[in-house]
Each structure stands twice: as structure tokens, then as C-alpha cells.
């Protein structure tokens, strides 16, 4: 139990809550987009009424919204054809690294790099339902059909900072499956690459390859929406493939 970081953590937490409570969705996006971002004007040691020391009350429980709103799972028309950058390879590495940092192995659900406790169930949807960009922070659109219990799979990267628990390193000798290499699945130069990951729960290609996707992973043909017409799933990750799990067929 480390106590020394509690005050600043609490300040940050209060900030997030304050922002969400007062300014609604847009500001919420900013506040939750990173631990380092917008800290609200809370001065440490400042005298405050006791009640303010607690996160604002949000009564847990059913809301009309969660019960009635349809699931957002619409692939939007691409808004822009991203301009060419000279270092697309580099961007790909960076993206792969950024992506891998939040996952135990290729295919693991990413952890959440911001606080989630205290947010209601539809808070996730506000930003990740359609994707959102705020400054240099990006909330990616969910890659799968709407599943209501988001926190079942996605947990905070640093939990309990709200009550001042300092993040502690956890040792583990697990070495996860690495991210697939780019271009490893083309039949020939110029051929459309085979999808180097499972497509189960990643049916929404634009999540990573669309407007709010990763740098270097956006195609120059985003306006074409039938991705799997040209890009076929790699059989070795696809459980429904007849060769899945067949060791002989996966040898290089």
C-alpha cells in the first residue's frame, strides 16, 4: 500500500469526474483519454466541503438509455482519404508497438489506458461507439458488434488509482504471441494481403484501419467497404478454418 501518490491521484480522479459531470461527453473524452491529460483546477490542500472529496454520486442502475438505445455498429463512410506519408513503414512499427503495449499477446483484449470506474455502462459507447479524436488522443471504434458488458473484457490498466493505490510492476514470465508482421501474408508483391489476425470479434475493419484507426494501417482505398472481398482471413488464426490447430499446416 503506497500512500504518497494518493493526493495527486485523487485530484486527477476528481478532475475526470468533474469534467464528465459538468461538460458532458466531449470533455469526458478529453479527461479519460489519458492519465496525463487535463487536470482540473483542484488545488492540493485546498479546503473543500467534505462531500466534494468523494466522486459525484452516480446511482448505479438501469437507465432508459442503456435499455433502449440500439447498438452502434455502423461502419461510417470514410471521411477522408488519408494523405500519403513518406514513412509508412515506420508508422506501422509505431502503431504495432502502441497496440502491443496494451495487450498481453496478439488477440488479447486491450486494457483501458484511462479510468473506467464510476462511469456508466454507456460511457464506453460515447467515445468508442463511433470513434473520436481529441487532440492527439484517439478513441478507436469498437472492433466488434456491441457487447454491453464492456468491462467484462477490458479492464483498467492502472486500477484503484482513484483511491491512491500506486501502480506496481507485476512480474510474469509469459511471452505472448507477437503482433503479426506486415506483408507477411501476400502471395506476391502487390497482392492484397491476407488478414494476419483472427477476424472473430474484429468484423469492424475500420476500427483499426479506418478514420480513427492506426497510422500506417489505413488503406488508400478506404471508400471501398467490402474489405473481405479482397482480403481473406488467414486460415491459421481462424477457428472455423479446417486447418486451424493443425500443426503440420502451420509450419513455415
Amino acid at each position: 500500500m503506497t500512500l504518497h501518490t494518493r493526493e495527486s491521484a485523487r485530484a486527477r480522479w476528481l478532475g475526470a469526474c468533474w469534467a464528465i459531470g459538468v461538460a458532458g461527453t466531449a470533455i469526458a473524452a478529453l479527461a479519460i483519454s489519458g492519465q496525463e491529460s487535463k487536470t482540473p483546477p483542484v488545488v492540493e490542500g485546498m479546503a473543500m466541503p467534505v462531500s466534494i472529496h468523494h466522486p459525484p454520486a452516480r446511482v448505479k442502475g438501469p437507465t432508459q438509455r442503456t435499455l433502449t438505445e440500439p447498438a452502434p455498429n455502423v461502419v461510417p463512410e470514410a471521411k477522408a482519404n488519408p494523405a500519403a506519408v513518406p514513412d509508412k513503414y515506420h508508422a506501422r512499427f509505431e502503431s504495432a508497438q502502441a497496440r502491443a503495449k496494451l495487450r498481453a499477446y496478439e488477440g488479447a483484449p486491450p486494457v483501458v489506458p484511462h479510468a473506467t470506474e464510476g462511469l456508466s455502462v454507456h460511457a464506453c459507447r460515447e467515445c468508442h461507439g463511433h470513434g473520436l479524436r481529441a487532440g492527439d488522443k484517439v478513441a478507436r471504434m469498437a472492433s466488434h458488434t456491441y457487447l454491453a458488458n464492456c468491462t467484462q473484457c477490458h479492464v483498467e490498466d492502472q486500477g484503484l488509482t482513484q483511491i491512491g493505490v500506486a501502480p506496481t510492476p507485476v512480474e510474469n514470465l509469459f511471452k505472448g504471441l507477437a503482433t503479426s508482421g506486415y506483408g507477411s501474408t501476400r502471395a506476391w508483391v502487390g497482392a492484397p494481403p491476407v488478414i494476419p489476425h483472427t477476424t472473430f470479434m474484429r468484423t469492424n475493419c475500420v476500427s483499426c484501419h479506418g478514420e480513427y484507426g492506426y497510422d500506417g494501417w489505413r488503406p488508400d482505398h478506404l471508400s471501398r467497404t467490402n474489405c473481405v472481398q479482397c482480403h481473406t482471413p488467414g486460415a491459421h488464426f481462424e477457428q472455423m478454418s479446417p486447418v486451424f490447430g493443425d500443426e503440420a499446416s502451420t509450419a513455415p
Binding site: 504471441l177 507477411s184 501474408t185 502471395a187 494476419p196 491459421h236 488464426f237
Partner: peptide, 14 residues
């Protein structure tokens, strides 16, 4: 089409 391995498929077994 040539099935080329993706990373991790060196004996990756499910």
C-alpha cells in the same frame, strides 16, 4: 496464392 507464415506460426499450435 502462397500461404506464407505470419509471425508466431513457427509451430504455433491450437
Amino acid at each position: 496464392a502462397v500461404s506464407l507464415p505470419v509471425m508466431g506460426q513457427g509451430g504455433l499450435k491450437w
